[in-house]
Design a protein around this nucleic acid. Structure first.
Lengths: 208, 208
DNA sequence: AGGCGTATAGTCCACGTGGACTATTTGAGG
DNA sequence: CCTCAAATAGTCCACGTGGACTATACGCCT
């Protein structure tokens, strides 16, 4: 398992790899699935970015071409599949981003794709995050207190204060999530996306 | 007041304009000030971005060169000043980003620089945001409820749920902020940055 | 007095993003 | 039956970002 290449993934790269875990696809299908799942909430879905990303992933050996399809008379479609290296890199990325507290945008994606990891794995990562969050919260609190004490005017601290409120809310939320995961309150593991199942079935039927 | 150019600013652009409101400066001084004020919390401070940004702002007529200084035998430094157009664009940007709820990163910057607006102005913008936030919160709540009802597995809703918790916390915080602004609990208006005052004084002394 | 690290001030380049654009094909409405 | 919109599948380009790099000058230690 050589690990020199591409430990770093872009948000779109993560989504692409995660989608290929569900089955081989061509890029345009990724777009449709992401749109159907309202992934615009997490990142901006644009063709340009996607096709570039797919090209990059292939050059890095994280995905492979598995053939050029042609359905009816529509333009050719290149279908891709996930390599073992790609699956590894995805899992590593998820672990890293689930454990860290910088890069909030990345964390949201990691969380949304957390079902690609084992339950125990997720719990462990979130406990790491919980620790980091706690420390950051303490530092933040001290920083704010110190600034007020030094007479820094409130108007420049407003954003600081908001951040503390949000940090606090997140701390409580993550505690409850870890609890529920440990209590096995709900299932975990690879998921059939109910929203898009019908579409996927349709596609498979059409391919035969 | 023709307003065709550059209603759109990058985060770094906003910071640069806001800094120039405090006095004429050269880019390198902006870097030092931003570092001193720990603005890395809000954006990544890099020379490349800054110098590009300054060049762009100048081409767009939002700032002007006011002379090329030379202190001792150090490299030349080009000093810039804020134009009237620049001041207008800054204020407009702040109003827009303070009122909206998309673009969270931009909002944080707008909030941190909100002291560049009048108190009444800020209150009005925040009330707009408060409304949008409320609506978004309701929609989010309904969406989550609907998804659960349709049997979408909890594991894919985790990120959704977190977002709702954070939205809720933000709602409460913004209410309290608006209250305190209306009650005039603390001062408002252009601020002498205590943290960096000493540095600025030093600089002025050195220039004479 | 000499050497070395750091501050000063800025340039340059590779990458990722996102929006605009193209060209064909299918389906729905009049 | 014809038209026109929407879907299909993808290319291309301009911009902003961030990191690496350069080169001089000042201050500190020995």
């Amino acid at each position: 398992m050589s690990k020199e290449p591409a430990e770093r993934l872009t948000p779109m790269g993560v989504m692409a790899l995660a989608l290929l875990r569900e089955g081989d696809m061509h890029p345009y299908e990724m777009v449709r699935l992401m749109r159907a799942r309202r992934d615009e909430r997490l990142l901006t879905i644009t063709n340009g970015t996607l096709y570039h990303t797919v090209g990059r992933l292939q050059r890095e050996g994280l995905i492979d071409e598995v053939g050029i399809d042609r359905e009816g008379n529509r333009p050719e479609r290149t279908t891709y599949t996930l390599t073992d290296a790609g699956a590894d890199v995805l899992v590593d990325w998820l672990r890293r981003e689930l454990s860290g507290i910088d890069r909030p945008a990345e964390f949201r994606i990691a969380l949304a794709e957390a079902h690609n990891l084992e339950r125990a794995d997720v719990i462990e990562c979130l406990q790491g995050r919980r620790l980091a969050l706690d420390e950051s919260h303490a530092q933040h609190r001290d920083g704010l207190r110190g600034a007020r004490h030094k007479g820094v005017p409130e108007q420049v601290l407003v954003e600081f204060e908001r951040q503390e409120v949000l940090l606090d809310a997140e701390l409580r939320w993550i505690d409850s999530l870890i609890d529920r995961l440990e209590a096995e309150e709900f299932g975990w593991g690879p998921t059939a996306f109910e929203n898009t199942d019908r579409y996927l079935a349709q596609r498979k039927a059409a391919q035969q």
